[in-house]
């Protein structure tokens, strides 16, 4: 029989960017707060904290989700990927490279979330077209309005992959 854990802080093991990380947080902690707080991964941003903006987008088992609406404890046993896990040994991921090249940001606050959404799209659909990219980031608000360049960057990254 599965037993209840909490409500006070419990030990969790989260697989983040390929590494198992231990944290001690209560079940009410969102994945976002856990990433940004105990795990010190502040690349994922908090904007609305209620699933209305997409700035907190991370990948769980390859799919983009809102980490503000995900409980950390519910992410146990799953693969969590954040913006910090994308570039390896200082080499940018092709999507990150395309974002730089196409000026696909202004203030940059939504950028980590946008990048994660596009990365996920291109994994599932390497030959993604403009409409696919536009739809893939439709759950990531950009108040600066960098959308035309975000879409262009996504399309360029897909073309490079092809």
């Amino acid at each position: 029989m599965t037993s209840l854990r909490g409500p006070n802080a419990v030990d969790l093991t989260l697989n983040v960017n390929g590494h198992d990380r231990s944290v001690h947080v209560p079940p009410r902690f969102s994945l976002l707060d856990t990433l940004r707080g105990p795990l010190g991964l502040t690349g994922t941003k908090l904007v609305c904290d209620e699933g209305d903006c997409g700035a907190c987008t991370v990948l769980i088992d390859d799919r983009p989700v809102y980490s503000c609406l995900t409980l950390a404890i519910a992410a146990e046993g799953r693969r969590v990927e954040t913006i910090e896990g994308l570039s390896q040994d200082g080499t940018l991921h092709p999507v990150q490279e395309a974002f730089v090249e196409h000026d696909a940001y202004q203030c940059g606050f939504c950028t980590p979330g946008q990048v994660m959404s596009v990365v996920s799209l291109l994994r599932a659909k390497p030959d993604a077209r403009e409409d696919d990219v536009r739809r893939a980031v439709s759950g990531n608000l950009c108040r600066c309005g960098a959308y035309p360049n975000i879409v262009a960057a996504g399309v360029a990254a897909a073309k490079k992959k092809r």
């Binding site: 940004r36 991964l41 940018l92 990150q96 974002f99 730089v100 090249e101 606050f109 980590p112 990048v115």
Partner: peptide, 20 residues
């Protein structure tokens, strides 16, 4: 392209919200 582009796309750019 922006000279600070790398920081913006890697999550390394430190915003007020990120100051601990």
């Amino acid at each position: 392209p922006r000279v600070d582009g790398r920081n913006r796309v890697t999550g390394r750019a430190m915003y007020t919200q990120d100051v601990r």
